[in-house]
Design a protein around this nucleic acid. Structure first.
Lengths: 337, 337
DNA sequence: TGTTAGCACTCATTGCCGTCGAGTGCTAAC
DNA sequence: GTTAGCACTCGACGGCAATGAGTGCTAACA
């Protein structure tokens, strides 16, 4: 399982070359580009060994070698050093964040865009659900006769809302007093503590204006359900068109399809990602993503786990992707403190 | 400029065939498929005429003919009848709308999805800005010490919000009283009547708690700016991958690029669309969309003009697209009444 | 024992025909 | 005005040889 220094050098050369060109790499190319002090024939012998060990493969007999998934795996685990991205670019991102700090959605969108631009892969951010947020404020707003708005605000400034029907004779003052009641009951509780059963209990308790309250409670219930959903933000899908592996329209279609429905991508990301940068290569992913690689890292946001990373072809510049994902993750981490 | 009956028949045959197969159509195919009572040779003569008039073109000498953009234009203007889509499908859509009537965003998303699914092209909906909405309600909500939320609700139930900084000694009660003040001043006015200068004037008028009010006014100002933006909702991008014209990766990239930035697509849609269904073929569009066609119709929503339609290749089933766009537009129209 | 030069072998790619067939334009006959 | 016939055009397709990159193997060398 452990390779000697020369084999490592050769494997590394082949990986760098192959990632850059997407072409099989021959023995001559290895000695030429990385001027090792050995001949092509020696390299050939070594390459044959590496192939036997499973780190390389040969598309056909008279072609050069390309790294196998196992080869990439070995490189990533045992040889790779993350490439740090220049301080100034990070400064740009920090700048952009502080400019939009008022609006979490915008910050997230910016970060995703930054990540995809720098890496030139497709970036994603999984924004955790808001279970742990505190209830801050509820308001019933009279819109038009027979129609009101339930508005729920969390301590993070997240806003959820839903329209409800009300009996036409309910006045603004009525709504206000009902709202006050809700606020008293809910004050400062965590969203995930407001369970369906609580709502039911509250419903029983209240006799007056049952109709409004019923509808409002239903609306709140639905809002809370939504709050349990993670969101996924994606940026840089087009970057994939530059990768020669997506010349194949079928691959491209599968990839785009995966992104089209929110849920699909979420369920296909590697599970159990901790705070470290994690790399998942080709068939290590689920069936749907078996010819892509994912570089992903976790971040904590108010007690919940979010994820950030990039998706690219197996032939990915892992060193650059990992370095960038790590740096951006750290910035997010900072931001949440 | 006017064609005799036989030429029209031939043009129509060629269009139908070409749209279905994406292959040049020969003279034999025309007589065979549409059993006209004339021979292939006659058709050839007519086709030569049609080519000279600019309605057909020939990819190369020994190939069949394909309709030119002018040919499509003639067909659309002078021969086409919209194909109506089955009542039951429309019912499905109406059903879906009434189910989600609580949330305008969801309805829009549904309609777009429906349109793209039925036509198998890429659907878009331009949701007009909300200039004409009425101000309904403003609330200042205390989030955390030093931080509050400005919340603005329109009579349509649209919600805009923004976080602001406040001096840390401001209490919830303070915010409430300031909010009341705003509400009095703004009550029932139209959003587009709340101009920057008004806000400035209000600012001058108020002496107390200047800091909070300043920040809130700034926030409102920004929210109003946003409210002037149209939104574009897009669905069914992937449908394009089925069209053989997008085998060409360069075309595909240009198209996806256009969709990637919100603004780009908005600015490239045909201008001056009225309530009728409008068709814009190939180079009649802006440079960026010169090999696509757009079928578009307008709808009125609270005094503002919205647009709905589909984008497809020039080789589009205009009759089906136009029929569907029209039907869906009518449903939207109904919904807004 | 590890390294290297030499050489035969493999195989994808490229360019070059020749054939095939769909489709045309033209002409002469109906 | 319509049609049949025929020569012509031109892209698509398949076979074939040349090319060249790259390999594996062997024998000689250090």
């Amino acid at each position: 399982m452990t390779l000697d220094e020369r084999k490592r050098k050769i494997l590394q050369s082949i990986i760098k070359d192959y990632v850059a060109t997407a072409e099989p790499v021959g023995s001559r190319a290895v000695v030429r580009k990385h001027d090792l002090k050995i001949s092509a024939a020696t390299v050939r012998n070594e390459m044959a060994d590496l192939e036997e060990m499973g780190y390389l493969e040969q598309p056909h007999t008279s072609a050069g070698r390309i790294p196998s998934e196992q080869g990439f795996r070995y490189y990533v685990d045992c040889m790779m050093e993350n490439e740090h991205l220049p301080e100034e670019q990070l400064e740009d991102l920090k700048q952009a964040i502080t400019e939009h700090v008022r609006d979490l959605d915008q910050v997230i969108a910016h970060v995703a865009q930054f990540l995809s631009q720098i890496t030139r892969y497709t970036a994603f951010i999984v924004v955790p659900s808001i279970h742990a947020s505190q209830f801050r404020y509820l308001q019933l707003i009279h819109l038009n006769p027979g129609e009101a708005l339930v508005l729920l605000v969390t301590n993070l400034g997240l806003i959820m809302h839903r329209r409800i029907d009300i009996p036409p004779n309910i006045t603004e003052e009525d709504l206000e007093s009902i709202g006050k009641l809700f606020n008293q009951v809910f004050a400062r509780r965590r969203l995930d503590a407001l369970r369906h059963t609580d709502l039911q209990a509250l419903k029983e308790e209240l006799h007056q204006r049952r109709r409004v309250i019923d509808n409002a409670l239903d609306a709140i219930d639905l809002l809370l359900q939504d709050s349990h959903e993670e969101r996924v933000v994606i940026s840089g899908v087009l970057n994939m068109l530059n990768e020669p592996e997506f010349k194949d329209l079928e691959k491209l279609r599968r990839f785009l399809h995966l992104l089209e429905e929110e849920g699909a991508i979420k369920n296909n990301l590697p599970q159990g990602v901790g705070e470290n940068v994690n790399i998942s290569i080709g068939s290590e992913n689920s069936e749907e993503m078996k010819d892509m690689s994912v570089v992903i890292a976790g971040y904590r946001s108010f007690g919940e786990m979010g994820k950030i990373g990039v998706i690219g072809p197996v032939r990915m510049e892992y060193w650059r992707a990992a370095g960038t994902v790590e740096a951006v993750r750290n910035i997010i981490k900072e931001m949440f403190q």
